[in-house]
């Protein structure tokens, strides 16, 4: 059975199904239950935006509120994972990675390799990413490139409810540490999602739209902007292929290369800052492995090299828009496209 649910509900459902299936799955985070120790309603919050609401009633103490001590509880989730549990730890806003990154990139990410392949750390660290919520510089970042950079971490960033459910289930079953990035501006977005359990394998991009003129690669919120751009371009007779990466580490190189070899043009869209991000990563890979197929310079559309501004008038300029993506596509199509420089 399938029905329309939001990405928020899809995440809740994935947690619920995996907790039912596997008693080693526990879920922890700040106010993910809410009201702990207080006199009023139990399960008062279910997470700051209500993503885990209702799970406490179903699974009781396997949902754990934490003190505001991310180093300690994220580290504890990692330690428990190394000892046989499958913890899902919520970091609320992934910007808070700043206070607990050691446990993630020096500990969790290293165990497997550093211990000679003898360790498994099946932990999921999930939280919000992305701008557009008027949440300012410390609650809006797209830090996906930082996580992707670290060997040993897997990085997931769904663009819709269907993928969020299947990818979160896969993340929980996966035996490596996974950073699960939820774009806060996609939480309310609904789509058809099966009620039953299903897993989406890592490293398989989703081709959302076929086209032979240009390849647009993105992930997360900007996938939707890319689709808008593609619709607008189609009116002028340009057919764009739109690829949603879904997982950034591992990444589906094959689908990207296959598409670029057909279209000869590539636009990469990343909500992260312009230096050392997914766009530069993909552009370099394609330049190295499909140079002969390119009919024009690769275009990158990213956020600017600035922190996320608070003022709505500035934040609206910060996130890549459908217009800027369409503009980048047009540059690859112009006669000078072969020598174009990023705007």
């Amino acid at each position: 059975m399938s029905r329309k649910i939001s990405m928020k509900q899809a995440i809740n459902e994935a947690l619920d199904l995996e907790m039912r299936r596997d008693p080693t799955v526990i879920v922890m985070g700040e106010d993910i239950v809410g009201g702990t120790g207080a006199q009023g309603e139990e399960d008062a919050w279910g997470g700051v935006l209500g993503v885990t609401k209702g799970l406490y009633a179903k699974h009781g103490d396997r949902l754990m509120d934490t003190p505001l001590s991310e180093s300690a509880y994220i580290g504890a989730a990692i330690g428990a994972a190394a000892c046989g549990l499958r913890p899902v730890a919520e970091l609320m806003f992934l910007d808070f990675m700043g206070v607990c990154f050691d446990q993630i990139f020096n500990q969790a990410a290293k165990f497997r390799y550093m211990f000679g392949g003898k360790a498994e750390t099946p932990v999921v660290i999930r939280g919000m990413v992305g701008a557009g919520f008027r949440a300012a510089a410390q609650h809006s970042q797209m830090l996906t490139p930082l996580f992707t950079h670290i060997p040993g971490l897997k990085v997931v960033c769904p663009s819709n409810a269907y993928d969020a459910k299947g990818l979160l289930i896969q993340s929980i079953r996966d035996n490596d540490p996974v950073i699960f990035c939820e774009h806060k501006n996609l939480y309310g977005l609904e789509c058809e999602v099966p009620a039953e359990s299903y897993a989406i394998p890592f490293g398989e991009a989703n081709v959302l739209r076929d086209g032979d003129d240009v390849t647009i690669v993105s992930y997360g919120l900007t996938v939707h902007r890319a689709m808008e751009a593609a619709t607008a371009l189609a009116k002028d007779g340009t057919e764009a292929e739109v690829i949603d990466l879904r997982t950034l580490s591992p990444i589906d190189w094959d689908t990207i290369i296959e598409s670029v070899e057909r279209t000869g043009r590539l636009v990469v869209v990343d909500e992260a800052h312009p230096r050392c991000n997914l766009a530069t990563d993909i552009a370099a890979f394609v330049g190295q492995n499909a140079f002969g197929a390119l009919k024009a310079g690769i275009q990158m559309v990213t956020a600017p090299h600035t922190p996320v501004p608070f003022a709505p008038s500035l934040e609206d300029l910060y996130v890549p828009s459908a217009d800027s993506i369409a503009g980048a596509v047009r540059r690859t199509l112009s006669p000078k496209g072969a020598r174009s420089i990023a705007a």
Binding site: A136, A137, Q138, F310, A311
Partner: peptide
Amino acid sequence: GRSTGACRGKGGSMHIADLSKGMMGANGIL
């Protein structure tokens, strides 16, 4: 979020600062 703001609209409620007053900033990170 106005350009006449204490941080020219870049910071918002959670990041108001005025170093000339010895106020080193509200903070979004606990």
